[in-house]
Design a protein around this nucleic acid. Structure first.
Lengths: 266, 266
DNA sequence: GTTCGCGGTTCATTATTTGAACCATTGGTA
DNA sequence: TACCAATGGTTCAAATAATGAACCGCGAAC
């Protein structure tokens, strides 16, 4: 593993619940030597990716990140395109909606909205990357991903995250068939024991999957009626995002959706 | 210079006008060996900071950036707080308004809005970091910055950017006195020969400068009336941002503003 | 068909990263 | 007061990883 990767991985330890970390925290989380971690932190800070609170000496994410986001959004306006769709969906369904982009063999959350209409809320951490085999979004992506990515994930170890995580390659392939047939990735207690979720894949201009739009519901609150509601609403959201980004929805997927909910409005 | 810095510097070559770059571009811009650059690019891509267009093989900024922005914004909601202020100001003044954060001895642009009301427009590149001695925002920050930062900048070389860049330490100190007296950083043709600009510093909760709110106008269009208008409006914008972030405006600065425009509305 | 520029790769040389031990400061505790 | 346990940070020889000149294969242009 290169030095660059080691340094960048430090940035992954930040999360909504852990927005600032001390040197010791990084050492514990990364299992690396203190001196090494410290030099990496300093170098990241010198480049504006981190900044240090001079009083507490804790590190937090720096302004360079914002600058780069501005550049990316100027040319690939994902956030601004997706944000209204996610917000609308969250309002309609009344549950946590999130959008993630495929990044290598994982999913990288872009944004999420929780309407906060209920007492219990699904905890969603945008700093946490999502595994492809253990989330509804991941299954949705994987089912429509290029063969080599699918093969790579099937070959690799399938880490268990919760009681119902699919950890067997054969079972995973079967699950992906189901996803392709229905057009939705479904995952109950596969990533978190208390969460059930449904997701649909999103495609880019070249016809490849680029990410997924997902809805996460506390397991106790996930009824059949809610599943139907979600299945009816998700394709519309995906369509909005896809057209906005100039992508195209594969006909096979559109067919699957149509077959699943013949009464859904376009 | 460490490997991490070398890799991260590659990210700085992106800009609004250059949203995707090929290997050769990076090599030319960075003056480094092709093999080195290539490995850095690959490693950045592996971590989601870049992604490669499989057809053109060009690199663009990746989704990891978005994820990190989401985390930072969740705890330090700069963009979302500042965006409406910048938008309002841009509408009122009819010129390009931008907000930047202090990052080491430079300014890192966070966002900008150009109402696009005129034929000529100031070119503002959010990917470009701004020098402290050659921009109005920089002068505004520097004038109210801790002594050690000011000393560091005064000691370092003052690179010329345009015909009127202050390159002499003594002249710079004098300029900073003027800034402190008026409460505004003013810079005409110091960063770009065709641009005049005015900026005001923004302070954080600890009472230190954290950045600046600036307005850039094509030199030919910058009249005295416009300067007055800007001077009347800028303090309001700074106040909105400062209160939103829980900061406090130093009394000395508030006094300077009051003295400069006794007829300004609060 | 040759040449040019492109992205990408190789491998011996070299320079950078590494980490055990160390220092300084703080906050708690006997 | 003295002591201990954490904290963040630093040092320097040893080990490892980064480096870059030369090379490959490809597609476009002449």
């Amino acid at each position: 593993m290169g030095t660059i990767t080691k340094a960048l991985e430090l940035l992954n330890f930040f999360s909504r619940s852990r927005p600032a970390l001390g040197l010791g925290d990084f050492v514990r989380l990364s299992h690396r030597d203190k001196a090494t971690v410290h030099r990496h932190l300093v170098e990241l800070a010198e480049n504006g990716f981190l900044e240090q609170n001079p009083e507490t000496r804790a590190y937090r994410l720096g302004p360079a990140i914002l600058r780069l986001t501005a550049v990316r959004e100027a040319t690939m306006p994902m956030r601004s395109l997706v944000a209204p769709v996610v917000a609308d969906l969250a309002n309609e369904v009344g549950e946590l909606v999130h959008f993630s982009l495929l990044q290598g063999e994982q999913l990288s959350p872009v944004l999420h909205t929780d309407p906060g209409r209920h007492g219990t809320q699904v905890h969603f951490d945008e700093a946490e990357v999502l595994p492809l085999h253990a989330t509804s979004s991941g299954l949705a992506v994987l089912a429509f991903a290029p063969a080599d990515l699918r093969k790579a994930v099937l070959a690799g170890p399938l880490a268990p995250f919760a009681s119902h995580t699919i950890t067997d390659a054969a079972a995973l392939e079967q699950a992906l068939d189901t996803v392709r047939a229905s057009g939705f990735g479904v995952n109950d207690q596969g990533f978190d024991d208390e969460v059930a979720s449904v997701a649909a894949p999103v495609f880019g201009p070249d016809g490849n999957v680029i990410g997924a739009l997902g809805i996460a519901v506390p397991f106790a609150r996930m009824t059949e009626a809610k599943r139907t509601e979600i299945s009816n609403l998700l394709p519309g959201g995906v369509a909005r995002i896809t057209t906005a980004t100039g992508g195209t929805i594969p006909t096979a997927l559109a067919e699957a959706w149509k077959a699943a909910q013949p009464d859904a409005v376009s």
